[in-house]
Amino acid sequence: MTAAPEVARGSATGGVLLDAHNVTMQFGGLRAVGNVSMHVSRGEIVGLIGPNGAGKTTFFNCLTGLYKPTSGSVTFAGQPLPPRPRKVVYAGMARTFQNIRLFHNMTALENVMVGRYCRTKTNAIDAVLRLPRHRREEREATDRSRELLAFVGLEKKADTLSRNLPYGDQRRLEIARALATDPQLLLLDEPTAGMNPQETREAEDLIFRIRDLGLAVLVIEHDMRFIFNLCDRVYCLVRGEVLVEGAGDVVQNDPRVIEAYIGKPTVIEEDGNDA
């Protein structure tokens, strides 16, 4: 723990939404994540960077309910994080995937409507008998999903099978699908992987617009330039631990970060032994 969180907490626009405290994840003898603390406040864009194998994805999985941390706690909106991915979504946190995991043989609209699943209540009897609840929710889900498709700029492709969409559109569709779950916090796992500079700029713009809706965003990224432009605060994870935390330019210029990415192998070796 550094002193930085206190500073950042003060500058946060709202209350703390996601608070991970001393999270450790151990696989047998391997400690993938050790004592990581992180928080995300309402309306904030937070970045998580780190070289390959730094434990970013493991930590991410701890946040989304896929793994239960070996020790430490995660709270979301003041409540302990439920241990199952589905319940995490229900609590208000939605994610995208590093390698796109859309429902490929469903249309764009259907994909987004799957996201509405957790906010609708139609049961089998409603559906079989076509009771009013089914019709109302079906109409509402369709409208909301079309709205979200328009928000990410895919309104013209609502009826395209997601597998037929170009790569960049697939990424945006994944975001729309996540937004359909009415999240308070959106977790993006490498949203610009494989994108060209033009598409990256569009993604950046989209994330700002999402923030303007009042959502908090946590982004995992490789692309340093992208993340420093985008984020209010950045955590740099190395060897399973938070190396540096702070505003974009602070982290960007920190010699330890540069070292971790490019730097001296011998020093990293020692770090590894300590960890």
Binding site: P85, R86, V89, A94, R95, F97, R101, F103, N105, M106
Partner: peptide
């Protein structure tokens, strides 16, 4: 729709709150 999602990618469906 939930069933189709499960058939296509069960893990993603669970992660989307299904």
């Amino acid at each position: 729709r939930g069933w189709v999602a499960i058939r296509e990618d069960e893990l993603a469906a669970e992660a989307m709150g299904v």
